[in-house]
Design a protein around this nucleic acid. Structure first.
Lengths: 203, 203
DNA sequence: ATCCAGTTTAACCAAATGGTTAAATTCCTG
DNA sequence: CAGGAATTTAACCATTTGGTTAAACTGGAT
C-alpha cells in the first residue's frame, strides 16, 4: 500500500487549528481549510469525516495545553511561594507559545460546556485542590500567610496569568501599545505577577 | 400613521443579543432571531437592514457596558486604596448583571479588532492612564506602596475582576461547583479581591 | 369612506456550505 | 508487470443562509 505519510493529515490539522481558533466552529469554512492545506475539500472529509469531528480533535489538543503540568506543579512537594512562582512562570511561558489558545478554549467551553466533560474525567481535580488547600492551611497556621481559600488563590493566580492574553487586543488598544510594548509588558509580568501574589497573601 | 411602538424593535434586539452573545456573529441565525421575536425574518431586515448592522449595534451596546464608569472612577479625586476598592466593586457588580458580556466583547474584538476603533475614539484613555500613574507615583514616593506601573496595576485589577466570569464554565467544572457555590465565590470576591490587591502593593 | 405611510407577511432567490460519489492516481507487493 | 489498497480529485447534491420583493394589513388623518 501507499505509505501513510502524515504530511497531508498534519497539514490539514495545522490549517484547521488556525481557522477554528480564529473564527470558531461556525465561522471556519471547510473549503478554506482545504485550500489552505493545498488539497481538495473531499480529502478533509476522507481524513476527519466531519467538521465536528475535526473541530473536536483540535479542541481536545488545545484543551490539554490549557491544563498541561498544572496538576503536577500543584501537587509538587515544594513550598507555597515556590509553587506560586512555578505556576505563574509555567502559565505565562506556555501561553506565550499559544497566545490564542485560552480565548479559544474558554469560548468554546462557554458555548458547549459538555464538550469538556470527557476530557476532564482523568484530571481528578478534587484531590489536587484538597492537597493544595492543606498546604495553604499549614502555612496559615504557621503564620506565614493570611487566610485564603485554595479556590480563590488558584483563581487569582490563573486570572493574573491568563487574562492579559485573553484581553490582548483590548489592552493594546486601550493602552495604545505596539506589539513590542505588549510583549515587554508580558515579559515583565513573568517576574512581577508571582511577587504580586506572594505580597498579597504574606502575613 | 401607525403608532411607532418600539415593541417589535425591542423584541428583536433582545432576542438578537442573546443569540449573538451565545453563538457569535456567524453562529447566530437570522431565522432563529425572527422566530424568537415571534415575527417574520423580513421584518428583522426591515428594522436593522443586515445581520452585520444588527450585530454591530449589539456589540456597541455591550462594549459600552464594558467600560462604563471605569474612566470616571480612575479619574476621581479619592485615595488610591479607595479607588481600587471602587473599581473592583464596580466591575464585579456590573458584570454580575451581564455575566456573558466580557467573553462576548473580548471574543469579538479578538476576531475583528477594528470594530472597536470607532467606539473608542471618545475614551481618550491616555490621559486617564497618565493621571492614574501620577497618583501611583505619589503614593510610592510617600512610601505607602511598592513601585508598580499603572498599566500593570490596572491589568491586575481587571484580570482579578473579570476573568472569573470569562472562565465561569471552566471554573465550575474544575472545582466541581454548583451554580450557587459559584455565586457565593463571586460574592466573596467582591470583598476579598480589593484587599488582595491592596496587600499586594502595600509597602 | 378614502388615503396613505408605516408595518408585516409569504414566497422567492442566489450564494454558500457541509457533505457525497465515483472515478482517477499513486505506489507498494507479489 | 499486474493487482490492489490507500490516497486524491472533480463534479455533484441537498440544505441552509442572508437577503429581496411585492403584496397585504393596520390605523390614524382628511
Amino acid at each position: 500500500m501507499k505509505q501513510k505519510d502524515n504530511k497531508t493529515e498534519e497539514a490539514i490539522l495545522q490549517v484547521a487549528r488556525k481557522a477554528f481558533i480564529q473564527k470558531g466552529l461556525t465561522g471556519a469554512r471547510m473549503q478554506d481549510i482545504a485550500d489552505g492545506a493545498g488539497i481538495n475539500k473531499a480529502l478533509v472529509h476522507y481524513y476527519f469525516e466531519s467538521k465536528e469531528k475535526l473541530f473536536a480533535l483540535i479542541f481536545q489538543q488545545e484543551f490539554r495545553k490549557f491544563f498541561s503540568n498544572l496538576a503536577a506543579v500543584l501537587s509538587a512537594d515544594i513550598c507555597l511561594f515556590d509553587k506560586i512562582q512555578e505556576i505563574v512562570a509555567l502559565d505565562i511561558e506556555r501561553i506565550s507559545q499559544f497566545p490564542d489558545m485560552p480565548l479559544f478554549v474558554l469560548n468554546e467551553i462557554s458555548r458547549n460546556p459538555t464538550m469538556m466533560v470527557k476530557q476532564f474525567k482523568q484530571l481528578q481535580a478534587k484531590n489536587v485542590l484538597a492537597g493544595f488547600q492543606q498546604q495553604i492551611d499549614a502555612e496559615v497556621k504557621k503564620g506565614i500567610i493570611r487566610k485564603i481559600s485554595a479556590q480563590q488563590l488558584l483563581i487569582n493566580i490563573q486570572s493574573l496569568s491568563i487574562f492579559p492574553f485573553v484581553a490582548k487586543p483590548m489592552i493594546r488598544k486601550v493602552m495604545q501599545m505596539t506589539e513590542k510594548q505588549y510583549q515587554e509588558m508580558i515579559q515583565a509580568r513573568k517576574k512581577e505577577v508571582a511577587q504580586f501574589i506572594i505580597n498579597a497573601i504574606k502575613a
